[in-house]
């Protein structure tokens, strides 16, 4: 029961507090691309890969009292923080869900900005293309984000580290 909810709870048990919905979206997408079997469906949106299913599932976890959501006002928008509750821990204790280890990946991602993770997830979205085609695509779909060549190179490097490869294939 609620296997996909339990997988997300496993994520929160490992990650601790997550600040920002955008960061959460990108982290789950990146983990999914590292073969962690999250089943939320993602589509490409204005700000890169986004899952409405994940948004709704998070809302369910909050309404069930498994995740605590707090909202803080920033200059022109709201930012959300998520943490696992005691009820969430109890739920997870009843769950049989097993996921491959991903602690090291979470540690790496938590240190990054959501803007950088947006770039990483966008690169992963176009993983079926060659490296040069991906970079060309980034310039098209992320025109307004003004990512520099250094940003893009760091993102490739980051992906290689996450996936445990020394070199990203061109």
């Amino acid at each position: 029961m609620l296997t996909n909810h339990a997988k997300l709870m496993k994520f929160f048990m490992t990650s601790g507090e997550i600040i920002g919905r955008k960061k959460l979206q990108k982290m789950i997408y990146i983990l999914k691309n590292c073969d962690i079997p999250f089943e939320e469906k993602f589509e490409f949106h204005f700000y890169g890969p986004y899952s409405e299913e994940l948004t709704l599932r998070m809302e369910e976890l909050c309404n069930l009292g498994f995740i605590a959501e707090s909202k803080e006002k920033k200059s022109n928008y709201y930012q959300y923080r998520y943490t696992m509750t005691r009820a969430g821990e109890d739920f997870l204790n009843h769950s049989q869900v097993v996921l491959p280890p991903f602690e090291d990946k979470i540690d790496k991602m938590k240190d990054q900005s959501s803007r950088f993770l947006e770039l990483v997830s966008t690169i992963l979205y176009f993983k079926h293309l060659s490296k040069s085609e991906v970079e060309e695509k980034i310039q098209i779909v992320k025109k307004s984000s003004n990512y520099t060549a250094t940003d893009i190179e760091s993102a490739w490097q980051f992906i290689a580290e996450l996936q445990g490869n020394e070199q990203v294939q061109a």
Binding site: H5, K22, Y47, E60, K74
Partner: peptide, 22 residues
């Protein structure tokens, strides 16, 4: 069978967070 609202392919309007969704 437990069925949740997130099992359905429909969404509500959400203003969301900056950079989350337009």
């Amino acid at each position: 069978v437990v069925d949740s609202s997130s099992d359905l392919p429909y969404d509500f309007y959400r203003p969301g967070e900056e950079g989350e969704r337009l």
